[in-house]
């Protein structure tokens, strides 16, 4: 399956990963052959009706009691955070 350059770029943009020229080419090749191989599931999947959903087939999730418990974790986290001002994480100014 051919994956075009625009597709690789679009996916990288969605995933917020910057790719070099060389990487774009490399991934174009690799993703193409892997996606090609994946086509075999198309017909295999049709053994089950399209309405079948995995997400409601699972066992239901347990619920936690609504009790507030303090966590003293933040100091430790701030210590190894990339950039901190006071107790907030700093990022470049967000332009709305």
């Amino acid at each position: 399956m051919q994956i075009d350059r625009q597709t690789v770029e679009k996916v990288a943009r969605l995933a917020h990963i910057h790719l070099s020229e060389e990487e774009i080419e490399y991934y174009q090749g690799q993703l193409g052959s892997v996606l090609d191989y994946m086509q075999q599931i198309q017909s295999a999947a049709d053994q089950l009706p399209a309405e079948w959903r995995a997400d409601i087939a699972g066992t239901s999730c347990p619920e936690r009691l609504d009790e507030a418990k303090p966590s003293q974790i933040i100091e430790k986290v701030l210590q190894s955070a990339p950039k901190v001002v006071g107790t907030a994480f700093q990022v470049p100014r967000i332009i709305e």
Binding site: L31, M38, I41, Q42, A45
Partner: peptide
């Protein structure tokens, strides 16, 4: 990138949803 691709608009049903059915099989 592979995971982003199979979840992205227009590909979810062809990949993610079908792979889940294969998983069930």
């Amino acid at each position: 990138m592979l995971g982003t691709y199979v979840l992205s608009s227009g590909y979810y049903d062809a990949y993610y949803a079908k792979a889940n059915r294969v998983r069930e099989l």
